[in-house]
């Protein structure tokens, strides 16, 4: 098993490097001889390595297992986001093809993993990556996040907490020595250069606009009326369907009905029912304030 793990890790490393246009010398990769012997890689002639077709396919299958398992952890378990990568990394080498397909089926053959990366299909198809880094955008630029890198975990943790996730729209508010300030997920945050480098963005689709009046439900005040705009993609699986079923759907009008004795949880009047939500939920629900006259 250890052998398989070494081989697969080296293969992935090679795939990633070649994919981002780097060259890898056989001498730099620990098990390059074994890779060549297994006909997964070949010497390109100048001492650098290239992948064979079989090697490319194999690498994609390992990536598929990894991304599927992360998706599984995100949707079906309560493990926090900063553990997914480590766990998936441990498991990816132990799964056989059948187990991988079982997971895929159980999850409804997902297309993207929780970080926004496409999952290679069973026959090895993978759309090319899009977009570019957040730090390369000018002030005032608005777009959507397509990928949030999960390493290093400490930085990723901060981003996830702030609501960064694939498919979330953002706008650059300011750039300066202290970092990049962005409006994202209903609030404004300032990212360090290291954090900003983890976020990949793309332009808005033609039919999309950036709406700066969107705030988080937790920022709603007593007496105000609001309309739900969206639920963050970070709310997944059971937690998401629960919210939807309870009537927290785009277009639902809500007001605060009650606050718990210590300020939490907060009960909202939603579609005729009083429903209490916790803070970690209300900071993931995007709303837009309504003028009192609209509130009918």
């Amino acid at each position: 098993m250890a052998e398989r793990e070494q081989l697969e890790d080296a293969l992935k490393l090679l795939y990633d490097a070649l994919d981002s246009g780097e060259t890898v010398r056989s001498a730099d990769l620990p098990v390059s001889a074994e890779l060549v012997a297994a006909e997964l890689a070949r010497d390109a002639g100048d001492g650098t390595l290239a992948l064979t077709d079989a090697g490319r396919e194999y690498a994609l299958q390992v990536i598929r297992a990894h991304r599927l398992y992360e998706t599984y952890l995100a949707h079906r378990t309560g493990h926090p986001a900063d553990e997914w990568h480590r766990q998936a990394h441990a498991v990816e080498h132990t799964l056989d093809a059948e187990a991988v397909e079982d997971i895929a089926r159980a999850l409804g053959d997902p297309l993207y993993d929780p970080h926004g990366d496409p999952i290679p299909t069973a026959d090895g198809q993978l759309p090319p990556p899009r977009g570019c880094g957040l730090s390369e955008r000018p002030v005032g630029w608005a777009g959507r996040i397509i990928h949030v890198e999960d390493e290093p975990p400490e930085l990723y943790q901060v981003l996830a907490q702030a609501g960064f996730a694939p498919d979330v729209r953002l706008r650059i508010e300011a750039t300066g020595t202290d970092g990049t300030t962005v409006r994202v997920a209903g609030h404004t945050v300032t990212l360090s250069a290291g954090q900003a480098a983890l976020v990949q963005c793309d332009g808005l689709r033609p039919d999309e606009v950036f709406d700066a009046s969107v705030i988080r439900l937790r920022d709603l005040r007593e007496g105000e009326t609001a309309e739900v705009v969206s639920i963050s993609p970070l709310v997944r699986g059971l937690a998401r369907s629960r919210l939807l079923d309870l009537g927290v759907v785009p277009g639902s009008v809500l007001t605060i009905a009650l606050r718990g004795p210590g300020g939490q949880p907060v009960a909202y009047l939603i579609r005729g029912a009083t429903i209490a939500l916790r803070e970690e939920q209300t900071e993931r629900i995007m709303i837009r304030r309504r003028a009192a006259s609209e509130a009918a």
């Binding site: 059971l238 369907s241 939807l244 079923d245 309870l246």
Partner: peptide, 9 residues
């Protein structure tokens, strides 16, 4: 009693 018929509960 259920709020919906779409979830996997």
């Amino acid at each position: 009693g259920t709020y919906s018929l779409l979830s996997a509960t």
